[in-house]
Write a protein that binds this DNA or RNA. Structure first.
Length: 425
RNA sequence: GUGGGUGUAGUGUAGUGGUUAACACGUCUGGUUGUGGCCCAGAAGAUCGAGGGUUCGAGUCCCUCCAUCCACCCCA
């Protein structure tokens, strides 16, 4: 084979489209219910936007970015995530002059140079939502509820919500110091990977998979115990709002997980993740958190924000796994079966059928039997059969392709035909 | 980036080192004049992931590369 798709990318074939349409329609409808509006930003941005926003020390920036110099010599990067771009757009377009907070959603390709495996691609799609311009915990609760509703509306079950708070930047410093000092006591016991990680990002040790580290982590300092007064109030308020929400939504559950960390630098306070039970290692289906420092880091006036990203491909994997019923693909209403040189006589009719909302195709120019088989194979509902006989009588034969198979001859007049067909459908 | 598994028509599979690589589904064509689904018959479709090597002989054994899957890592 001469050409194959680049590693870690995928072709989304027609038969898969029903999943995509279903997920995206559900996403959009749910977000609209919460007052979110669609936003789109460029596929590539100035490399520095991500270095600054996502964080120079993160894996995403250090080794996963698709960066290149364009012909003008500027360093460009295919976006690895959505939030930095949306915040850039917010700043650049003066959105702080709109009513606050602003609520956006987007669906876009994300690019990360990673080793592909199931649920992890080099190009993947994310549906994301952001609330920018208000730091109150009501919005934390709202965005989490939106995430939950979205998953719920898709028909997924057994999805676990984990939440945690990382505190704000001031208290985080002290927490990180204590946390890293805690692990340092056991430095000789730590596995290699984790002793390396300790220097770079001590938070990561909390969700380490190494048995030794796991055990140590259970007694490690918790970020909840380091919260400033404001952050503590924020956190408690969020919890109480979630409890309130649970009263009206019996199957809404959350689990506070002090070991939950997220890989991007801009998160503070609330972080959360939705994970299907029994999912593999690439399980997270939706994840996000608060990023109050981000806009200022990008050069805007200090403006708080919170949001999430959710992988469409992972969502579809889960829908298939749980065998959720998905509305079917595009169907064909009418197939024109034509014998002899009559197709031209029907050209106007075909156009009229389409104009009246009936999806219509003509069968390929083959034997009649073959044309009927074609009609059957594409799951068409109605066949309009025309040959020289019908043309001379100025009529057509209309056959119902459902189980009845009944057939009737009607005049070759678009109005009459359309009325007759609409009656059957 | 690290470790392991896998790689045979469009898809899913079979194939003790030995003639023209098999089966199912799908596609196409027929099964008397212009009627689908079921059934029957036939056809097309694979340089056995790529390139080297061992051998009289390789889909089968060895090496390299590529892709894919699993775990690490990371994250959606």
């Amino acid at each position: 084979m001469k050409f194959t798709r680049p590693r870690g990318t995928s072709d989304i074939l027609p038969e898969q489209q029903k999943y995509w349409n279903y997920v995206l329609d559900t996403a959009k409808n749910t977000a609209n219910k919460f007052g979110f509006q669609s936003i789109e930003t460029p596929t590539f941005e100035d490399t520095n936007l991500f270095k600054r926003g996502v964080g120079e020390g993160t894996d995403v920036v250090m080794k996963e970015m698709y960066s290149f110099n364009d012909l003008g010599g500027d360093s460009i990067t295919l976006r690895p995530e959505g939030t930095a771009s949306v915040c850039r757009a917010y700043i650049e377009n003066g959105m702080k002059n709109q009513p606050q907070p602003q609520k956006y959603f987007y669906n876009a390709s994300m690019f990360r140079y990673e080793r592909p495996q199931a649920g992890r691609l080099r190009e993947h799609h994310q549906f994301g939502c952001e609330i920018i311009g208000d730091e109150n915990p009501e919005y934390d609760a709202e965005i989490i509820q939106l995430g939950w509703k979205y998953i719920k509306n898709l028909g997924l079950r057994s999805v676990k919500l984990k939440i945690n708070t990382l505190g704000d930047s001031k208290t985080r410093e002290k927490y990180l110091r204590d946390l890293s000092n805690y692990y340092k006591q056991f430095i000789h016991k730590l596995p290699k990977i984790d002793s390396v990680r300790l220097a770079r990002s001590p938070l990561r040790l909390l969700d380490s998979k190494e048995a030794v580290t796991k055990e140590l982590s259970s007694d490690a300092p918790k970020s909840v115990d380091y919260l400033s007064e404001e952050s503590k109030i924020h956190w408690e308020r969020l919890i109480s709002l979630l409890n309130k929400f649970a009263e009206n939504n019996e199957d809404f559950h959350y689990e506070i997980d002090n070991k939950l960390v997220r890989g991007l630098d801009y998160y503070n306070r609330t972080v959360f993740e939705f994970i299907p039970k029994n999912s593999g290692t690439q399980g997270t289906i939706l994840g996000g958190g608060r990023y109050d420092p981000l806009i200022e880091m990008l050069g805007g006036t200090p403006t708080p924000g919170i949001g999430f990203g959710s992988g469409i491909e992972r969502m579809i994997i889960e829908l298939k796994k749980q065998k959720v019923e998905i509305p079917g693909n595009q169907t064909i209403d009418v197939v024109i079966i034509h014998m002899g040189e009559v197709l031209e006589e029907l050209w106007g009719l075909i156009s009229d059928l389409r104009d009246n909302g009936l999806s219509t195709v003509f069968a390929p120019n083959r034997s009649m039997k073959s044309q009927m088989r074609y009609a059957n194979n594409i799951n068409a509902k109605i066949a309009i059969i025309v040959g020289p006989d019908e043309i001379s009588k100025e009529s057509v034969n209309i056959k119902d392709l459902s189980s009845t198979g009944s057939q009737k001859e009607v005049n070759l007049e678009s109005d009459v035909i359309i009325r007759y067909i609409e009656n059957i459908l």
